[in-house]
Amino acid sequence: MATARELLRSLALHGILLAAAGLMLLPFVWMLTTSLTPSAEILNPSLRVWPANPTLAHYADVVQAAPWLRYLWNTVVVSTASALSILFTSSLAGFIFAKYRFPGRDLLFIIVLVTAMIPFESYMVPFYLQIKALGWINTYQGIAAPLLIMSFGIFFMRQSIMTIPDELLDAARIDGATEFFIYRRVVLPLSKPALGALAILSVTNSWAFFIWPMIVTSDRRLFTMELGLAMFQRAFTVDYGRITAGSVLTVVPVLIAFLILRRSIIRGVTLSGMKG
């Protein structure tokens, strides 16, 4: 009796899970099939899942219409610069907050925590004016600027570095190590797992960043993948074959990375949904 009920429960549960998984996947399936469907067939809709006459024509057009590889390269440049800068600044600041005592430290740390909660969007207008004053409109530096530091990263690295025993650092000091040597040779190697998670979080954030690149660049040679796709949509509003083909092009690198690094990506992203 109890087992029959258990079985029924488990069946119902997997039914729900499976249906939900289908809902999660369906948009991706539609993205792919629409990109392979000839325009005439798109405008003559039916419920068929796979197109009657699949074609790569949209991809041929899309590749001609925009420099996607250039967009990919720009995204890679910005994400890499952002990740390197965030790893360096977060670990250094995290080290100091975790292992040094100086007046004003706690107040400073609270300020860092508060800024982690303040969305970038709420101060982007003055931020734009600062970047403009530097002459960084339409430059890589300009796009990467808000991504060079992450308040949450400082907090996260502090928590991680606090678990390193003081004795270890003192032993190095007795041996005559400089503070920077300790940071490089003791703290960084021991923080590798945390740094890895932070790197993934920062790359995921900067890869998907949209509103800022849109504001700070108008030169299409500097467009990131996201911005490039948005501009492509602007140009081909209802040409769904081409637009979905463009989407597939921008999604493929992300999905490949996700399938290869899925465990670390899930861990990195679940660290924090906070940006900033």
């Binding site: 999660m24 948009p27 991706f28 993205m31 995921t204 890869w207 998907a208 949209f210 993948m225 996201e226 911005l227 796709l229 948005a230 989407s247 597939v248 921008t250 999604v251 992300v254 999905l255 996700f258 990506i265 992203v269």
Partner: peptide, 8 residues
């Protein structure tokens, strides 16, 4: 959907 960026 979580890892796929908003634009696509």
């Amino acid at each position: 959907p979580v890892v796929t960026p908003w634009v696509p």
